[in-house]
Nucleic acid binder design. Structure first.
Lengths: 148, 148
DNA sequence: GCGATATGCTTGCACTCGCAGGCGATTCGC
DNA sequence: GCGAATCGCCTGCGAGTGCAAGCATATCGC
C-alpha cells in the first residue's frame, strides 16, 4: 500500500472517477447526452466511414452487446445515429453517425476539452503533459482500438 | 481533439476503465467482493479509528447516500462491517470495519497491488513512476479526502 | 422553550447494465 | 448440397444506482 504502483493505480482510479463525475453532470445539463453516449459517438467519429458494427462498438466501449442495443434505441429516436445492415452479411448491423450526431459530438467535445483544460491547465507544465501522454499511451497499448 | 489536454483526459478514462474492469472480475472471483466494496473498506482503513459516517463515505466514493445504505446491508450481514450510532448526534450512523473486514481488505489489497504491478511493471521506469505519482497527486488535490 | 430550518439516513420508483437464452444468418466439414 | 457449429443481435431477468420524498434528530432565531 505504500508501493508506488499501488498508490498510482489508486490515484488513477480516483482522478478518472472525479473527472467522469464532473463531465456527467455538464453533459446531461448542456447537451442532453450521457458520457457513454458521447463516447459512442466519438468511437464512430474515429472509425472508418463513421460506422461500426454493434459488436465492435461493444468491445471498444467495455460494455456488453445488449447495452449497445439498448443505448442505440433512444439515440436513433432522437436522430443522433442511424442503423444500416451490411449487404454481404445480414447479421451485421452497423451503427452510423448522422449529421446531427456529428454536430452533437462536436459540441460535446468542446465541453470535454474545456474540462480537460480545467483538470490539467493550471497544474501542469507542457513538458509534463507530453510525458504523461507517452505514459498513458503505453498503458493503453495492447487493445488496438484506442480512442486517442 | 488533437489538443494534448483532451487526448490525455481520454486516455486517462480509458486506462482507468480497463484497470477497473480487470479488477472487477478478479475481485468477485477470488474475494467475493466488488470494487466498490473494496474501496469502501479502504476508505475506512484510511480514516481515523476505522470508522466514518455514511455521508462522508458517500462523498468520498462519489456515490449517493442511498447507495451506501444499500451497500452496507449485505456487508454487515457477512460481517465485514458494523454499524455504530454516535452518542452525541443520533442522526449519525458510523460504518466501522470489523476485524474480518480489515482482513478481507488486506487480501484484496494484495490482489490490487498485483494488478497494479501488471499495469505499470514492465512498461515504466522507476523514475517515470515518481513523476506519474507527483502528477496524479496534483490532479487529485483539492478534494481533501484523498485515498492515496 | 418552541417553531422553523437544516442534516443524516432510509425507502419507492425509474433507469442502466450484464448475463443467459433464443433467433436468424453465415460458415465449415463432409 | 446439408447438417453442425459459429456469430451477431435482441429480450427477460436480476443486480446496482440516483433522485425525490419521508422520517428522525439536531440546531437556530426569537
Amino acid at each position: 500500500m505504500t508501493d508506488v504502483y499501488t498508490t498510482n493505480a489508486l490515484r488513477l482510479l480516483q482522478v478518472a472517477d472525479d473527472f467522469r463525475a464532473g463531465l456527467s453532470g455538464e453533459f446531461s445539463a448542456i447537451h442532453g447526452i450521457s458520457v457513454n453516449e458521447f463516447l459512442l459517438l466519438l468511437h464512430l467519429e474515429r472509425s472508418a466511414a463513421n460506422r461500426l458494427p454493434r459488436v465492435d462498438l461493444a468491445r471498444r466501449m467495455h460494455v456488453s452487446a445488449s447495452t449497445i442495443t439498448r443505448m442505440a434505441v433512444p439515440m436513433e429516436k432522437v436522430g443522433l445515429i442511424d442503423r444500416e445492415v451490411d449487404q454481404r452479411d445480414a447479421r451485421l448491423v452497423f451503427v452510423v453517425a448522422t449529421t446531427a450526431g456529428r454536430a452533437k459530438l462536436s459540441e460535446a467535445l468542446a465541453t470535454f476539452s474545456k474540462r480537460a483544460g480545467y483538470l490539467f491547465g493550471d497544474r501542469c507544465e507542457d513538458e509534463e503533459m507530453d510525458q504523461f501522454a507517452s505514459m498513458l499511451r503505453r498503458l493503453i497499448a495492447g487493445t488496438g482500438d484506442t480512442l486517442a
